[in-house]
């Protein structure tokens, strides 16, 4: 097993790789914002609207969660044009990722909202908060604080899932890597570089979202460090 790695031919393609990195970033951010909004909307609809909305949301969540992202992408990209809806590859990818994250985040938000005890809501009502205030401050904020770690991992999975868009020739990191390997024939090297880009992106995303969660959900007086203290403590005690 003699590996002969040459990264020089790949360096020539740096601008293209940076463009691809940027596209992955845009796709992921778009999908994360839209997907989380969709999830929030669907999980709220599930508890707020009449009964039948519940099984509609459940149907959406279960169908999406139990079929591969790739097949969802194929349905959007290849099958929707048959009924007259034609999307470019990038938008088809964005739509698929959004719908996919929407289903997962619905389930995550639902778990969070269900974990809020009834008595909390009753206490809020008795303080004559409006329905909206009760929902925002007593149900939603503590719910999101509680499920933040699983939301963060789901967001990272969505970012990694954006690699699947290369199947319909979107030139994000994986797609560009495929193009470069067909130009340079240095396939192993290019995929190492692409993997490192994904790795950097997921570590960055995880760090940023963890700090963001710390700022959003820790009361200011308890916020001593910029980095959530709990993680470091846990690491020492384990």
């Amino acid at each position: 097993m003699a590996f002969d790695l040459q990264f020089a031919p790949i360096l020539a393609h740096t601008p293209a790789l940076l463009d691809a990195f940027w596209l992955t970033l845009k796709l992921s951010f778009g999908a994360v914002f839209l997907g989380c909004a969709l999830g929030l909307l669907a999980s709220t609809a599930r508890i707020m609207l009449p009964r039948y909305s519940r099984w509609l949301v459940d149907l959406y969540v279960e169908t999406i969660r139990n079929t591969p992202l790739l097949v969802q992408l194929y349905i959007i990209f290849f099958a929707l044009p048959v009924v007259g809806i034609r999307l470019s590859a990038v938008y088809a990818g964005l739509l698929a990722l959004t719908i996919n994250l929407g289903a997962y985040s619905t389930e995550i938000f639902r778990a969070g909202i269900e974990s809020i005890h009834r008595s909390q809501i009753e206490a809020g009502m008795s303080l004559s908060l409006t329905r909206w205030q009760v929902f925002m401050h007593i149900m939603l904020k503590p719910a999101v604080a509680r499920i933040w770690p699983s939301l963060v991992s789901q967001i990272i999975l969505t970012m990694l899932g954006s690699s699947i868009c290369s199947f319909i020739s979107v030139q994000e990191i994986s797609g560009e890597a495929y193009t470069i390997q067909s130009l340079t024939y240095r396939s192993f090297e290019i995929y190492i570089v692409a993997s490192l880009m994904y790795l950097a992106l997921s570590l960055l995303l995880k760090g940023m979202l963890t700090v963001l969660g710390h700022y959003l959900f820790t009361p200011r007086r308890q916020r001593r460090t910029w980095w959530p203290a709990g993680t470091a403590q846990k690491r020492i005690s384990s």
Binding site: M1, A2, F3, D4, I156, L160, G161, S163, I164, S166, S174, A177, Q181, S187, F188, Y191, I192, A194, S195, Y198, L199, S202, L203
Partner: peptide
């Protein structure tokens, strides 16, 4: 953390082309 930080697609390509490169 490395495997969880890269897409399955990359794991696939790395093992597919990596094994090929190793002869």
């Amino acid at each position: 953390s490395v495997i969880q930080g890269i897409p399955v697609l990359m794991v696939l390509f790395l093992s597919y082309y990596g094994l090929a490169q190793a002869g």
